[in-house]
Structures are given as C-alpha cells and as structure tokens.
Design a protein around this nucleic acid. Sequence first.
DNA 1: AATTTTAATGAAAATAAATGCATGGTTTGT
DNA 2: ACAAACCATGCATTTATTTTCATTAAAATT
Lengths: 178, 178
Amino acid sequence: MVCCVRRNNYVILHRFCYKYTIMKNKRERLKVVSEILKFQVIGSQEELLKQLRKRGFEITQATLSRDLKALKVAKTPLSNGMYKYVLPPQIMPISDELASHNFTSHGAVLSLDFSGHLAIVKTRPGYASAIAWDIDNRATDEVLGTIAGDDTVLLIPREGVSRDKIIKVINHIFQEKN
Amino acid sequence: MVCCVRRNNYVILHRFCYKYTIMKNKRERLKVVSEILKFQVIGSQEELLKQLRKRGFEITQATLSRDLKALKVAKTPLSNGMYKYVLPPQIMPISDELASHNFTSHGAVLSLDFSGHLAIVKTRPGYASAIAWDIDNRATDEVLGTIAGDDTVLLIPREGVSRDKIIKVINHIFQEKN
DNA sequence: AATTTTAATGAAAATAAATGCATGGTTTGT
DNA sequence: ACAAACCATGCATTTATTTTCATTAAAATT
C-alpha cells in the first residue's frame, strides 16, 4: 500500500479496481471454502463444488483442486467410512467477518457440565440444535454423538476421551475470538 | 470377549492361532505403514507401495488404499507443492465393531457405536425419530429406550445386554436385500 | 463334519483429484 | 503506453484413489 504513494492517480485507481474485481473473487472464495469446510462434512471436491455454486461461485474442479492445495486442506477418512476434507489446525486464522457469521461464538454456549461419562451443554434458548450440529461436525474424533433439545445438548464422548479433552474441544470450537 | 470364557480350549487355541497367522500379516503391515509414514515424506500410494515391497509386503494398491483408510491417514498438501500422507494425531484403535458391520443397506442408518453402556446410532439427517421408533418397537427385549435428535439416536440397552447383541439386533432390524 | 458367515484381497471398473497447456486479463518496468 | 513477465482459470488429460466384484481361506454355527 505504501508503494502506491509513489504512483499517480491513474495507477492507484487501476489497482483499486483490480482488488475489487479479480482478487476479491479468489480471496473471497478461499474464505468461503474455509467456512464451508469448517462447518460441514465434505467428502469430495464435487461435493464442495456444489456448495460453492450455491453461493454463487462458478469454478471448475481444477480450480478447486488448486484452492484446496493452497489452503493445505487434507482429505481424511472418518470412522463411519466416509471421507472429509479438513482444514489445517492452526494455519487458517478466522477473519472477523467470518466469525460474525458464526453466531455460536456470540455467547450461545452457556455452560458445560459432566455426569458420569456424559456431558451436558447448556445454550441460550433455541440454540441447542445449532450448537449440537457444530459439535458433531467439528469434534468427530472426540464426540460420538449429540442429542439436542431446545437449550440443552446431551453430548456423548467417545470412550477413552477425558473430560479435559472435551472441555478443551468445546472451548476451542466456541471461543469468543480467534 | 467375555463369551470366550464359555468356550473350550480347542476353540481358544483356534482363535489364538488365527490371530497369529493371518491377522498378524495385516496388523504388522499396518504397523509398518505407520512407521514409514512417521519418518518419511510419502506423496502417493504407489510410492508407499514401493517402500512396503522393500520390506517384503506384496500387496496391491487397492489394499493399501484400504489400509490407509483404516489408519485414518490423511493426504495433505505441503508448502513446497508436494503432498504428504500424514498419520492422525493420536493413533486410535480401529473400531472393528463398527467396521465389520454394514448398515448401508437400509440407507438411513449410518453407524453404530458405543460409549460406556450407551449406544449411539447415527442416521441420515431427519431420520433419527423414525429409526428410533423402529428400534423401540422391534428390539424391546434388548433396548430399554431411545432418544432421538435429528440425525442421532441415543440407545439405552437393558441391563445385561451385550454390545454384540445390540449390534446384531440393529443389523437385523435394518438389514435389507440388495 | 458340514454348512454358513465373515474377512482379506487382487483385478478391474469407477471416481476423484492433479496437472499440462492455452488464454485472457494484470502488473511491472522501461 | 508498450512489452515482458504474471496470475487465475478452464479444458482436456493424466494420474491417483476408491469401490465393486469375485475368490479364497478362515471362523462360527449347527
């Protein structure tokens, strides 16, 4: 940006337009890809492509393959025999814009408690299903399944998963900011 | 496993031999695959196959694909433009219980797993209630009750009912000819 | 011991994913 | 502004991976 100071108005305008037209598409697309993969179980590029089309991105599988490579997205097998594309753990910071779409990070999760090997997540009224869905999709390794009521989620940890681990995972998924 | 107590020595010996002859090959192979992936950058199954051949394992790429799936090995892009197969963070024991049973014939039932004395049935979205109803009505002897969410059924077995029994019953209920 | 089930596997078919090449805009340097 | 170097992308193709089908050995059941 600093370098723009040295340039004349024409060029600055030029670059401005550029950022607004071309690059934005790719960046935006990568962001959207991240968001989709963060919250959904996607097992193939074709599948992901459909999701992107829903959101107005008209690209081919070739481009998507390159995008996934750029994002370092890995394809991993799940316990249920399917596959899932997963984002790298730490590399992708969540932008504020994206975070704002994630209503769950706005305090919908109120508490987490345990009874025996079961966990109970309390949420704001009406949020339980949404929260449960997030848990299902983002903690598949630690959580066997969830059952949601209106403001309560029953969380069944996998065998051998400690309370601490559950706490950590829930915290990670629903932490206020990233 | 408890059931083995009831069996005679012949059977026990028989099973022992089995584990030692056949299974050992596969288990050994999976171990070796893990070892290789732990220390080398492997970018394709063919490449890994070569390493295995070096070590005396004569299998095809199809089998390797299955092995990698069983080990939950993910293929991830590297910064240098190549790919690498990576082991999952914590090496989890493979749920043979789950792997050995297919619920796909019914379509709506995706998986069955256990945590403590509870069982979790995963279904396609929206099917949980219907599945739970079927279970309630057709497995009254084995199942105390169920609670259904949207895509998850919490199944509470009666006291003294084994996991194996539950697996069999669920399989039986949702079996369909192809 | 005979019969039925289950598990592992290879071969081949079916999918899925990666890539070479070409094209059309973009940016940079002059 | 012009030329050269770039980047993002689609298309076609290649390469890679997954799955289906059939077979065989092994294990459970009767």
